[in-house]
Protein backbone atom coordinates (compact mmCIF):
# COMPACT_ATOMS: atom_id res chain seq x y z
CA UNK A 1 0.00 0.00 0.00
CA UNK A 2 2.92 2.26 0.58
CA UNK A 3 3.32 2.67 -3.15
CA UNK A 4 -0.36 3.16 -3.98
CA UNK A 5 0.08 6.86 -4.35
CA UNK A 6 3.48 6.87 -5.96
CA UNK A 7 3.76 7.80 -9.60
CA UNK A 8 5.46 4.55 -10.55
CA UNK A 9 2.66 2.63 -8.86
CA UNK A 10 0.06 4.51 -10.83
CA UNK A 11 1.91 4.07 -14.10
CA UNK A 12 2.34 0.37 -13.57
CA UNK A 13 -1.29 -0.11 -12.62
CA UNK A 14 -2.44 1.98 -15.55
CA UNK A 15 -0.37 -0.24 -17.79
CA UNK A 16 -2.48 -3.07 -16.42
CA UNK A 17 0.42 -5.42 -16.05
CA UNK A 18 1.65 -5.34 -12.50
CA UNK A 19 -0.17 -4.71 -9.26
CA UNK A 20 1.44 -1.88 -7.32
CA UNK A 21 1.08 -3.88 -4.09
CA UNK A 22 2.81 -6.87 -5.54
CA UNK A 23 6.28 -5.41 -5.48
CA UNK A 24 6.27 -5.14 -1.73
CA UNK A 25 8.08 -7.91 0.08
CA UNK A 26 7.21 -9.13 3.52
CA UNK A 27 9.69 -6.62 4.83
CA UNK A 28 7.92 -3.90 2.91
CA UNK A 29 10.58 -3.35 0.26
CA UNK A 30 9.53 -3.40 -3.36
CA UNK A 31 11.54 -5.74 -5.57
CA UNK A 32 11.94 -5.81 -9.32
CA UNK A 33 11.48 -8.73 -11.69
CA UNK A 34 15.25 -8.93 -12.15
CA UNK A 35 15.68 -9.12 -8.36
CA UNK A 36 13.05 -11.85 -8.11
CA UNK A 37 14.78 -13.90 -10.81
CA UNK A 38 18.12 -13.45 -9.08
CA UNK A 39 16.66 -14.55 -5.73
CA UNK A 40 15.25 -17.69 -7.30
CA UNK A 41 18.51 -18.42 -9.14
CA UNK A 42 20.69 -18.43 -6.02
CA UNK A 43 20.37 -21.45 -3.76
CA UNK A 44 21.79 -20.38 -0.41
CA UNK A 45 18.87 -18.48 1.05
CA UNK A 46 15.75 -20.61 0.80
CA UNK A 47 13.37 -17.99 2.14
CA UNK A 48 14.45 -15.69 -0.70
CA UNK A 49 13.75 -18.45 -3.20
CA UNK A 50 10.37 -19.07 -1.62
CA UNK A 51 9.41 -15.43 -1.88
CA UNK A 52 10.79 -15.10 -5.42
CA UNK A 53 8.72 -18.05 -6.67
CA UNK A 54 5.60 -16.46 -5.21
CA UNK A 55 6.51 -13.06 -6.67
CA UNK A 56 6.94 -14.38 -10.22
CA UNK A 57 3.52 -16.05 -10.07
CA UNK A 58 1.73 -13.14 -8.49
CA UNK A 59 3.08 -10.79 -11.14
CA UNK A 60 2.54 -13.29 -13.95
CA UNK A 61 6.09 -12.75 -15.11
CA UNK A 62 6.69 -13.14 -18.82
CA UNK A 63 10.44 -13.07 -18.55
CA UNK A 64 11.98 -15.95 -20.59
CA UNK A 65 13.95 -17.10 -17.54
CA UNK A 66 10.94 -17.34 -15.26
CA UNK A 67 9.69 -20.67 -16.61
CA UNK A 68 13.00 -22.57 -16.52
CA UNK A 69 13.86 -21.22 -13.06
CA UNK A 70 10.46 -22.20 -11.66
CA UNK A 71 10.69 -25.66 -13.26
CA UNK A 72 14.06 -26.13 -11.57
CA UNK A 73 12.55 -24.97 -8.28
CA UNK A 74 9.77 -27.54 -8.70
CA UNK A 75 12.41 -30.22 -8.09
CA UNK A 76 13.70 -28.83 -4.80
CA UNK A 77 12.88 -31.13 -1.92
CA UNK A 78 13.21 -29.97 1.64
CA UNK A 79 11.61 -31.16 4.87
CA UNK A 80 9.44 -28.84 6.89
CA UNK A 81 11.41 -26.47 9.07
CA UNK A 82 9.16 -25.78 12.06
CA UNK A 83 11.53 -23.18 13.48
CA UNK A 84 11.35 -21.09 10.31
CA UNK A 85 7.62 -21.66 9.98
CA UNK A 86 8.15 -23.08 6.51
CA UNK A 87 6.06 -25.91 5.04
CA UNK A 88 7.49 -29.09 3.56
CA UNK A 89 8.88 -28.62 0.05
CA UNK A 90 7.88 -25.01 0.39
CA UNK A 91 9.82 -23.79 -2.63
CA UNK A 92 8.58 -26.57 -4.91
CA UNK A 93 4.99 -25.95 -3.84
CA UNK A 94 5.27 -22.22 -4.46
CA UNK A 95 6.89 -22.92 -7.82
CA UNK A 96 3.99 -25.23 -8.73
CA UNK A 97 1.49 -22.50 -7.78
CA UNK A 98 3.39 -19.88 -9.77
CA UNK A 99 3.56 -22.10 -12.84
CA UNK A 100 -0.23 -22.13 -12.99
CA UNK A 101 -0.30 -18.35 -13.02
CA UNK A 102 2.30 -17.87 -15.77
CA UNK A 103 -0.13 -19.38 -18.26
CA UNK A 104 2.69 -21.11 -20.16
CA UNK A 105 1.76 -24.59 -21.40
CA UNK A 106 5.46 -25.46 -21.29
CA UNK A 107 4.98 -26.12 -17.58
CA UNK A 108 2.41 -28.89 -18.13
CA UNK A 109 4.67 -31.98 -18.48
CA UNK A 110 6.51 -31.30 -15.20
CA UNK A 111 3.32 -30.38 -13.36
CA UNK A 112 1.85 -33.67 -14.58
CA UNK A 113 4.84 -35.49 -13.11
CA UNK A 114 4.30 -33.61 -9.84
CA UNK A 115 0.76 -35.07 -9.68
CA UNK A 116 2.42 -38.37 -8.85
CA UNK A 117 4.83 -36.92 -6.28
CA UNK A 118 4.88 -38.46 -2.80
CA UNK A 119 4.13 -35.07 -1.21
CA UNK A 120 0.38 -34.54 -1.27
CA UNK A 121 0.83 -30.80 -0.69
CA UNK A 122 2.79 -30.64 -3.93
CA UNK A 123 0.17 -32.78 -5.70
CA UNK A 124 -2.44 -30.33 -4.48
CA UNK A 125 -0.59 -27.29 -5.84
CA UNK A 126 0.12 -29.06 -9.13
CA UNK A 127 -3.54 -30.07 -9.53
CA UNK A 128 -4.74 -26.50 -9.02
CA UNK A 129 -2.22 -25.15 -11.51
CA UNK A 130 -3.10 -27.76 -14.13
CA UNK A 131 -6.71 -26.65 -13.67
CA UNK A 132 -5.72 -23.01 -14.16
CA UNK A 133 -3.83 -23.99 -17.31
CA UNK A 134 -6.86 -26.04 -18.43
CA UNK A 135 -4.46 -28.86 -19.20
CA UNK A 136 -6.56 -31.58 -20.83
CA UNK A 137 -3.52 -33.88 -20.56
CA UNK A 138 -4.04 -33.94 -16.80
CA UNK A 139 -7.50 -35.53 -16.89
CA UNK A 140 -6.24 -39.12 -17.19
CA UNK A 141 -3.83 -38.76 -14.24
CA UNK A 142 -6.44 -37.02 -12.08
CA UNK A 143 -8.94 -39.80 -12.83
CA UNK A 144 -6.36 -42.43 -11.92
CA UNK A 145 -5.51 -40.73 -8.60
CA UNK A 146 -9.20 -40.38 -7.70
CA UNK A 147 -10.34 -43.75 -9.11
CA UNK A 148 -10.63 -45.43 -5.69
CA UNK A 149 -13.42 -42.97 -4.86
CA UNK A 150 -14.50 -41.46 -1.54
CA UNK A 151 -13.57 -44.60 0.41
CA UNK A 152 -10.06 -44.76 -1.07
CA UNK A 153 -8.67 -41.49 -2.36
CA UNK A 154 -11.18 -39.70 -0.15
CA UNK A 155 -10.43 -41.63 3.05
CA UNK A 156 -9.01 -39.67 5.98
CA UNK A 157 -5.37 -40.21 6.96
CA UNK A 158 -4.42 -41.37 10.39
CA UNK A 159 -3.60 -38.55 12.78
CA UNK A 160 -4.03 -35.90 10.13
CA UNK A 161 -6.87 -33.72 8.91
CA UNK A 162 -5.87 -34.48 5.31
CA UNK A 163 -7.30 -37.10 3.00
CA UNK A 164 -5.32 -39.74 1.06
CA UNK A 165 -5.46 -37.49 -2.00
CA UNK A 166 -5.97 -33.71 -2.14
CA UNK A 167 -9.49 -34.41 -3.43
CA UNK A 168 -10.76 -30.86 -3.25
CA UNK A 169 -8.01 -29.50 -5.53
CA UNK A 170 -8.23 -32.46 -7.90
CA UNK A 171 -12.02 -32.22 -8.28
CA UNK A 172 -11.79 -28.49 -8.83
CA UNK A 173 -9.12 -29.08 -11.49
CA UNK A 174 -11.37 -31.52 -13.35
CA UNK A 175 -14.11 -28.89 -13.38
CA UNK A 176 -11.78 -26.15 -14.55
CA UNK A 177 -10.24 -28.26 -17.32
CA UNK A 178 -13.71 -28.81 -18.70
CA UNK A 179 -13.71 -32.30 -20.24
CA UNK A 180 -17.30 -33.47 -19.69
CA UNK A 181 -16.91 -37.12 -20.65
CA UNK A 182 -19.15 -39.73 -18.97
CA UNK A 183 -16.21 -41.33 -17.14
CA UNK A 184 -15.24 -37.97 -15.62
CA UNK A 185 -18.82 -37.17 -14.60
CA UNK A 186 -19.40 -40.58 -13.00
CA UNK A 187 -16.23 -40.38 -10.95
CA UNK A 188 -16.95 -36.85 -9.70
CA UNK A 189 -20.55 -37.79 -8.87
CA UNK A 190 -19.27 -40.39 -6.39
CA UNK A 191 -17.68 -37.58 -4.37
CA UNK A 192 -20.97 -35.68 -4.00
CA UNK A 193 -21.73 -38.22 -1.23
CA UNK A 194 -18.44 -37.68 0.65
CA UNK A 195 -18.66 -37.20 4.43
CA UNK A 196 -16.97 -33.83 4.31
CA UNK A 197 -19.01 -30.87 3.08
CA UNK A 198 -15.94 -29.23 1.51
CA UNK A 199 -15.42 -32.25 -0.75
CA UNK A 200 -19.12 -32.37 -1.66
CA UNK A 201 -18.90 -28.67 -2.48
CA UNK A 202 -15.88 -29.16 -4.76
CA UNK A 203 -17.60 -32.08 -6.52
CA UNK A 204 -20.82 -30.14 -7.10
CA UNK A 205 -18.84 -27.16 -8.35
CA UNK A 206 -17.04 -29.34 -10.91
CA UNK A 207 -20.26 -31.03 -12.02
CA UNK A 208 -22.02 -27.68 -12.38
CA UNK A 209 -19.13 -26.37 -14.48
CA UNK A 210 -19.06 -29.49 -16.65
CA UNK A 211 -22.80 -30.04 -17.10
CA UNK A 212 -24.47 -26.69 -16.39
CA UNK A 213 -27.27 -28.69 -14.74
CA UNK A 214 -29.07 -26.80 -11.99
CA UNK A 215 -29.40 -29.92 -9.81
CA UNK A 216 -25.73 -29.57 -8.91
CA UNK A 217 -26.26 -25.97 -7.81
CA UNK A 218 -28.89 -26.87 -5.19
CA UNK A 219 -26.49 -28.61 -2.78
CA UNK A 220 -24.07 -25.66 -3.10
CA UNK A 221 -26.83 -23.18 -2.27
CA UNK A 222 -27.83 -25.34 0.71
CA UNK A 223 -24.23 -25.29 1.97
CA UNK A 224 -24.55 -21.49 2.25
CA UNK A 225 -26.71 -22.27 5.32
CA UNK A 226 -24.22 -24.73 6.83
CA UNK A 227 -23.48 -24.06 10.51
CA UNK A 228 -19.71 -23.87 9.89
CA UNK A 229 -18.37 -20.60 8.48
CA UNK A 230 -15.58 -22.45 6.67
CA UNK A 231 -18.14 -24.46 4.70
CA UNK A 232 -20.22 -21.41 3.84
CA UNK A 233 -17.06 -19.73 2.59
CA UNK A 234 -16.19 -22.68 0.35
CA UNK A 235 -19.71 -22.77 -1.11
CA UNK A 236 -19.44 -19.04 -1.82
CA UNK A 237 -16.17 -19.49 -3.68
CA UNK A 238 -17.53 -22.48 -5.61
CA UNK A 239 -20.71 -20.71 -6.75
CA UNK A 240 -18.55 -17.74 -7.73
CA UNK A 241 -16.11 -19.90 -9.69
CA UNK A 242 -19.02 -21.33 -11.67
CA UNK A 243 -20.70 -17.94 -12.01
CA UNK A 244 -24.10 -19.34 -11.02
CA UNK A 245 -26.30 -16.21 -11.14
CA UNK A 246 -29.46 -17.82 -9.76
CA UNK A 247 -27.55 -17.95 -6.44
CA UNK A 248 -27.37 -14.14 -6.25
CA UNK A 249 -29.86 -13.74 -3.40
CA UNK A 250 -28.61 -16.65 -1.25
CA UNK A 251 -25.04 -15.35 -1.68
CA UNK A 252 -26.06 -11.89 -0.47
CA UNK A 253 -27.84 -13.33 2.58
CA UNK A 254 -25.43 -15.99 3.79
CA UNK A 255 -23.56 -15.19 6.99
CA UNK A 256 -20.01 -14.59 5.77
CA UNK A 257 -17.59 -11.75 5.19
CA UNK A 258 -18.51 -9.19 2.57
CA UNK A 259 -15.03 -9.62 1.07
CA UNK A 260 -15.83 -13.21 0.13
CA UNK A 261 -19.31 -12.37 -1.10
CA UNK A 262 -17.77 -9.72 -3.35
CA UNK A 263 -15.35 -12.27 -4.81
CA UNK A 264 -18.22 -14.67 -5.43
CA UNK A 265 -20.34 -11.97 -7.05
CA UNK A 266 -17.43 -10.96 -9.25
CA UNK A 267 -17.54 -14.56 -10.49
CA UNK A 268 -21.28 -14.24 -11.18
CA UNK A 269 -20.63 -11.15 -13.30
CA UNK A 270 -17.59 -12.46 -15.16
CA UNK A 271 -18.43 -16.16 -15.55
CA UNK A 272 -22.21 -15.94 -15.39
CA UNK A 273 -22.84 -15.16 -19.02
CA UNK A 274 -21.97 -18.77 -19.83
CA UNK A 275 -25.20 -19.93 -18.23
CA UNK A 276 -28.69 -19.25 -19.39
CA UNK A 277 -29.43 -16.85 -16.59
CA UNK A 278 -32.31 -14.42 -16.35
CA UNK A 279 -30.39 -12.39 -13.80
CA UNK A 280 -28.54 -9.57 -15.57
CA UNK A 281 -25.03 -8.44 -14.72
CA UNK A 282 -26.47 -5.08 -13.63
CA UNK A 283 -28.38 -6.72 -10.78
CA UNK A 284 -25.19 -8.36 -9.57
CA UNK A 285 -23.28 -5.06 -9.74
CA UNK A 286 -25.95 -3.38 -7.68
CA UNK A 287 -25.69 -6.14 -5.06
CA UNK A 288 -21.91 -5.68 -5.02
CA UNK A 289 -22.26 -1.92 -4.46
CA UNK A 290 -24.28 -2.53 -1.32
CA UNK A 291 -21.63 -4.89 0.09
CA UNK A 292 -18.76 -2.39 -0.14
Amino acid sequence: MATSNSLSGIVRAMAGTIDPDAGISAAGEPITEAEALQRLRQSEDHSQQYYAAWWLGRNRSRHPEALPLLLAALHQRRPRDPGAGVEENAIARNAARALGKLGDAGAIPELLAALDDGDDGLREAAARSLGELQATEAVAVLLRRLASGPAGAGAPRLASPRLQEPCEAMLEALGAIGIAEPGVITLIEAFTAHDRPLIRSAACRALLQLSGEARWADPLVQLLDHPQLQVRRAALMDLGAVGWRPALEPICHTLAENSLKLIALRGLVEQGAHHDATIQAGAVLSAMDSLL
Binding site: M1, A22, D289
Partner: peptide
Amino acid sequence: VAACADGEWVVRYAVAV
Protein backbone atom coordinates in the same frame (compact mmCIF):
# COMPACT_ATOMS: atom_id res chain seq x y z
CA VAL B 1 -8.13 9.32 -8.31
CA ALA B 2 -4.95 8.29 -6.50
CA ALA B 3 -6.60 5.02 -5.48
CA CYS B 4 -7.29 4.08 -9.12
CA ALA B 5 -3.80 2.56 -8.82
CA ASP B 6 -4.65 0.39 -5.80
CA GLY B 7 -3.38 -3.18 -6.17
CA GLU B 8 -6.67 -4.82 -5.17
CA TRP B 9 -9.47 -5.05 -7.70
CA VAL B 10 -12.15 -4.68 -5.05
CA VAL B 11 -10.73 -1.33 -3.97
CA ARG B 12 -10.67 -0.10 -7.57
CA TYR B 13 -14.26 -1.31 -7.92
CA ALA B 14 -15.23 0.75 -4.87
CA VAL B 15 -13.29 3.70 -6.31
CA ALA B 16 -15.48 3.53 -9.43
CA VAL B 17 -18.56 3.63 -7.18
